[in-house]
């Protein structure tokens, strides 16, 4: 009896979390106006791909898709390289002032990104980077949370491993590349999925720095489309599917690493 009640509640919550997605997918396959009826339709009365055709042919959402994909990949790869080098150095090298620097970085995590946005915008404008990929790549080059995550993981790598390689004559960079990086694979996967999804889903910053339709990332293009199509749920749902689907695929593929990352991040103190 207790078991049935428990599972009824569990299923009820699952229905609430999933219904918006199911309705979104369903409405995206409907003809114009077919999602604006009462009582609502949960399954398309006539199946059509016209909303997707409109998105890709008339509204060139393919370009926005490419922008999002290329930017998310670039930011992920570059920041992974930068963060892993710094995280490794913070964990395994002893130099004066290192801990002070690390603590400064950690305590500055409390500063909300919005504070930096105005000067950063001006800097990028003077550098001529507004409305280019650089405007999104530059603030994403490195991030403090990533350095922190890598450092925590590096600390658990035994020093003897590094010493042994050094005795064999390996230089520092070779040690980092051939020994450290392979050992870091799990935490790199965690950080990669965080960074990729973070860049893909980001809205405020791309909204500020991208000024042409053709440079918009998907969320900005979608928000913009919404302004003109407030009465076209079918089209907007197709746009949402195109935006959400890649994220869900990446997440499902790397789920394990994502969950681990949340727990690693939560044992800060």
């Amino acid at each position: 009896m207790k078991r049935i009640l428990l599972h009824t509640v569990l299923i009820f919550i699952a229905v609430i979390t999933l219904i918006p997605f199911l309705w979104m997918i369903s409405a995206s396959f409907m003809f114009d106006g077919h999602a604006s009826v009462f009582p609502p339709r949960f399954i398309p009365d006539q199946f059509t791909l016209m909303q997707y055709e409109r998105l890709f042919e008339r509204l060139s959402i393919a370009q926005n898709f490419i922008n999002s994909l290329v930017l998310s990949l670039l930011v992920t790869v570059i920041s992974l390289a930068f963060n892993s080098m710094a995280g490794y150095a913070f964990a395994k090298y002893k130099i004066k002032g290192k801990n002070k620097l690390f603590n400064l970085l950690i305590s500055s995590m409390i500063i909300p990104a919005q504070v930096t946005m105005l000067p950063l915008f001006l800097m990028l404008k003077w550098m001529g980077f507004i409305n280019t990929y650089m405007a999104i790549i530059i603030p994403g080059l490195a991030n403090i949370f990533g350095i922190f995550l890598i450092r925590q993981y590096c600390i658990s790598i035994p020093d003897s491993l590094i010493e042994a390689a050094r005795i064999d004559g390996a230089n520092d960079f070779l040690i980092y590349r051939k020994i450290i990086l392979p050992l870091l694979t799990p935490v790199l996967a965690t950080l990669a999925i965080f960074t990729f999804l973070g860049t893909w889903n980001d809205f405020l910053w791309p909204l500020i720095v991208m000024t042409d339709d053709s440079m918009y990332t998907l969320p900005v293009a979608l928000a913009n489309l919404m302004l003109e199509h407030t009465k076209d749920p079918e089209l907007m749902m197709a746009g949402s599917v195109v935006t959400i689907l890649p994220v869900i695929i990446v997440f499902l593929a790397l789920q394990k690493y994502y969950m681990k990352g949340i727990m690693m991040g939560s044992v800060k103190e």
């Binding site: 979104m24 969320p219 907007m236 949402s240 935006t243 959400i244």
Partner: peptide
């Protein structure tokens, strides 16, 4: 699932 999805897209939904 809602956590990883794009905020702008779910806000539209």
């Amino acid at each position: 699932l809602p956590v990883v999805t794009t905020l702008v897209a779910v806000a539209i939904v």
